[in-house]
Design a protein around this nucleic acid. Structure first.
Lengths: 127, 127
DNA sequence: ACAAAAGGTTAGCAATGGCTAACTAAAAGT
DNA sequence: ACTTTTAGTTAGCCATTGCTAACCTTTTGT
């Protein structure tokens, strides 16, 4: 699984948390990429059994895809929170999380996550 | 400057800390890439005035290249230290630093660095 | 019903950054 | 001196991942 694949899967997960079904165009708009880029990515992800696409073009995560999407999304959330706790502004924290989520090791992430869960679950509510 | 360019420059900096002059082969061995990969990279870096290569093939960092190399190397050292302090084993810390050093923002890095300098400069000597 | 808009695919280009194979040039060994 | 090894370059391949242009399809609106 490439970094770009992870991004597409994560997008689908995020978009599917809204009510409407997810289509290629939604992903394209969300990620700021062109239609053909999404089209090809979906073909690859579908081929690898990471997503399913019905006759109406509605995209759903298959088990393998959901697993990856959730993993990356968790990293996104935890890393964003982590950086914010360190003192990084929200937007920068999010942007950094977005890049680091794809490259951090499981080992390092688990430790970062443990630190977040340990050092006050409630400190996210300041301001 | 691409991520790969940063890696090459950082390698040259690290290798030049030893006594001998740095040649393409040293970089190739250090990074585990082929000779032609280094050859092309050096041509690009030389062209952009990031490195100088004398008639004997000895590679030195030009000012622009040194600046980048030192920035990335500092990130490498600080991020490795940071992860180790969090509880990540040395090897994993180093591997993660190696990937994150290219994608972390200046803002986030400065804050990470400040935390390192703050929370005990001496705790690196345990064990 | 037919035209327009929206969604999706196909074809093909570009940049990045690996690689091997094959060549040239320089250094070292006998 | 001649051979062999080492260093470096050139040419050209491959995969990834973005893009535009152009073409279908399907939906929508009048």
């Amino acid at each position: 699984m490439q970094e770009s694949g992870e991004m597409y899967l994560e997008s689908i997960l995020v978009l599917s948390q809204k009510d409407e079904p997810v289509r290629s165009m939604d992903v394209a708009k969300y990620l700021g990429v062109s239609k053909p880029s999404v089209s090809r990515a979906m073909a690859i992800l579908k081929n690898g059994n990471y997503v399913e696409i019905d006759s109406l073009g509605h995209i759903t995560l298959a088990d393998a895809g959901r697993k990856i999407a959730e993993k990356i999304y968790e990293r996104h959330v935890v890393l964003t929170e982590f950086f914010e706790r360190l003192g990084v502004d929200k937007q920068t924290a999010e942007e950094d999380a977005c890049r680091i989520e794809h490259v951090i090791s499981d080992k390092a992430f688990d430790i970062v996550k443990a630190h977040i869960n340990e050092k006050g679950q409630t400190s996210g509510q300041e301001k």
